[in-house]
Design a protein around this nucleic acid. Sequence first.
DNA 1: GGATTTTACTAAATCGTATTACTAAATCGT
DNA 2: ACGATTTAGTAATACGATTTAGTAAAATCC
Lengths: 358, 358
Amino acid sequence: MPKKHKNKAPASDARAADSAVQKNVSLKDVAAAVKLSPTTVSVVLNYSPLADSIPQETKDRIIEAARNLNYRPNYIARSLRNQRTHTIGVLIPEMSEGYSAAVLSGVEEKLLQEGYFYFVASHHHRPDLIERNTQFLVARCVEGILAIDTPIHQQSFLPIVSISGHDHVKGVTNIVLNHEAAAQLAIAHLHALGHRKVAIIKGQDFSSDTEVRSNTILEAARQSGVEIRDNWITQLIGDDPSPETGYLATRRLLSNETDFTAVLAFNDISAIGAIRALRESGLSVPDDVSVIGFDDITAAEFHNPALTTIRQPLKKMGSLGAEYLLLNIHKNPADTLSVEITVEPDLIVRQSTSAVTK
Amino acid sequence: MPKKHKNKAPASDARAADSAVQKNVSLKDVAAAVKLSPTTVSVVLNYSPLADSIPQETKDRIIEAARNLNYRPNYIARSLRNQRTHTIGVLIPEMSEGYSAAVLSGVEEKLLQEGYFYFVASHHHRPDLIERNTQFLVARCVEGILAIDTPIHQQSFLPIVSISGHDHVKGVTNIVLNHEAAAQLAIAHLHALGHRKVAIIKGQDFSSDTEVRSNTILEAARQSGVEIRDNWITQLIGDDPSPETGYLATRRLLSNETDFTAVLAFNDISAIGAIRALRESGLSVPDDVSVIGFDDITAAEFHNPALTTIRQPLKKMGSLGAEYLLLNIHKNPADTLSVEITVEPDLIVRQSTSAVTK
DNA sequence: GGATTTTACTAAATCGTATTACTAAATCGT
DNA sequence: ACGATTTAGTAATACGATTTAGTAAAATCC
C-alpha cells in the first residue's frame, strides 16, 4: 500500500526484539521510540540552542529513550556532516625505537584529552614512503599532520607541525631542541672533567638533527678550547635503529689514532654501541674514555655503566607538538602562529663520564 | 530565478579559478567536467561491473578528468555508504615500552599492507581506562579490536584478537607464546650450566603473562630437579615500565638468604634492573650469579653484559594478531576460526649466564 | 519488421547526522 | 479582540559517496 518503501517499521521492530546483539541504533530509531522527529531528537541530544523552546519534560523523555536504546551517534555520519574527523596523522621513521615511542606517548596523552585520535604511519626514512603515507593520511581526512623526525619539504593545505624537523617550510610549525644549549652542556661537562680531546659520532644524513647537532658541537668545542680533530669524527651508517650502527662507527674510529679521551655520541642508542666497541678493544668506560649520549631514553639510566647524557624532553615535545597542531587546526586561518617552539635540554650526569687521569 | 538553490555553479567556477589551494573536488565536480552523471563517474572510477557497457573512450575521458582535477574520493562519505572504515583499534598498556613498540611495528606493517589504519589508546593498566578506551574505539566505528597485553573480560559484537592475553573469552582469538617451551628452554639452559638453585622474579599481577610464566617455570624446574625455594621468589611491584621495578624486586630478594646461583627475570627490562642490583651488592654477573631475561627487546643485545634471554617473536606476534583480526573481520560470521595461535620462543645465549663454578 | 536484447547512460534512494527554513498552535501586548 | 511573538515542534536539504531501479536509443533476433 505505501507508494515507496520509505519506512520499514516491521524490520526495526524485529531488531528491537533481540536483546544481546544490539547494534546500530540510529537517530531515527530514537525518534520513532519517542514519536518525535529526528530533528528534535538531534537538537536535544546535542544541547543545541535550538532546543531552548523544547520543554524540559520532552527533553528528559528523549534523553532517557536514547539511554535505554543505548544510542551512540555514528561518528562517520557526524564527520561527514560536520566536515570534522577529530583525527590527525602522525609520520614517524619507525615504531621500534625508544625515541618515537617516547614522543608518541606525549602526543597520545594530549590528543586523547582533546577528543582526538591519531593514525600512525612509518616510513623507514624512505622519501617515497613519506610521500605515499602523507597522501594516505590526507585521503583519510586527517585534520592535520604531525611529522616526527621526518623531513617536510612541501607546504600543504593541512596544518603541519614538525618535531625535530629542520626544514623551514612556510606554514610549518617546528618543535626543536635548543641545540646550542645542548652542545654547550655536553662540551662544558667534558671540559670541566678535564677533557680536551673529544671524538664525535655524527648521526645518519637522513636524521634531521644530524647537521645542527654536529655544527653546534663543533662550535661549542671551538669556543671552549676543546679539540675535535677531523679523524675523530665518525658517522652512523645505515638505517638499523639498533646500537649496532654506533658500534661499527666506533670501530672505525678506533682504527685511526685513538688519543681522544671522550666520545660524544649522536644519541643514547649509538652511545651504547660505542661503549660496547670501546670495551671490546680493551678500553674502560669511563676510566679510559668517557662517553656521553643524547636523548635520555629509558635504557640510558640502567645501562652499565649508566649513561651520562643530554636529555631531550621527548614526551613533552610530543605533547607540545600535539598542542600546537590542535591550535593550528582551530585557529582562524587569518592570524599566524609562532613558527618555532624551542625546548630546553638537561645534562644528566651518570657513570659513563669521569675526570681525565692520564 | 531557480526555485531552490540546488547548484552553485558560479561558486565552483570561482574555486576552480585559483590553482594552489585545490581542495574537496567531489564526484559531482568530475561529473560536471565531463558532462555525465555522478553515477557513471562513480561506476567507472570504481571499476564496477556495471561499467561494462560503458565504451572505453568514455571511461578514458572520465579517468583523465578525475586525474586532472586531482579527484580524491572522500573516505568519510565512502565509509558511511559502505559501512566500512578500514580502521581498527589497538589497546596497549603504554606507548613507552620496548614491548608494545615491537608488537605495534608488526601490527602496523600488516595493516598498512591491507589498506587499514589503526587507532592506539593506552590504559596504563587501569580497568576504567580499558573500558573507556574500548568504548571510544567502538564509537569511532573501528571494525575490530586488537588487545595487546590487555585483559578482556566481556565478549563484544566486534571481532577481538588478544596478544598475550590469557582470559579465555568466547569469540576472542588469542595469540600466545608457547609458555611451556619457553620455561623449558630457560630452565634447561640453566640446568646445563650446572645451576640447581634459581631465583625468579614474577611479573606484576596486572600483566597477563605473569601467572602462566611463573607456573610453567616452577613446573619445568620441578621436572629438571632445579630448586626454586619460596624465598627465592620475588615479584615486580608498581606500574613503572622501567628497570627500576626489577631493581627493587632484586634488592628485596637479596635481603633474604642469597645462596641461589641464577635469577630468572620476568622480562628483559626487569633483568636489567636485576643486574644493577646484583652488581651494587658486590655480585658479578655472570660470574657469581647468572641472569636470564625474557622478550629479547632491542636493548638486550647491547646491554653490558649482553643479556641471555628467551626471545618472544614480538613483531611477528603483532603481525599475526593483525592478520587474524582481519580474517575475523572478513570471515563469514557463521564459520568459526581457530581460537588460539601459539608462537614459539627461542633461547638467545649471550653473556649474562655462565657455568656454575662454586 | 516487430519483439527482444544490448548499450549507454541517468534519477532516485541510501548511509546517519546536523541545520536551515518552515508551520501550526498558544500566548502576549495593547 | 486582533496582530505580534513565543512555543513546540517538523519537512526538506546537505555532507559525498554507492547502488538499485529504470529509460531511451540502437542493435539483434526470428
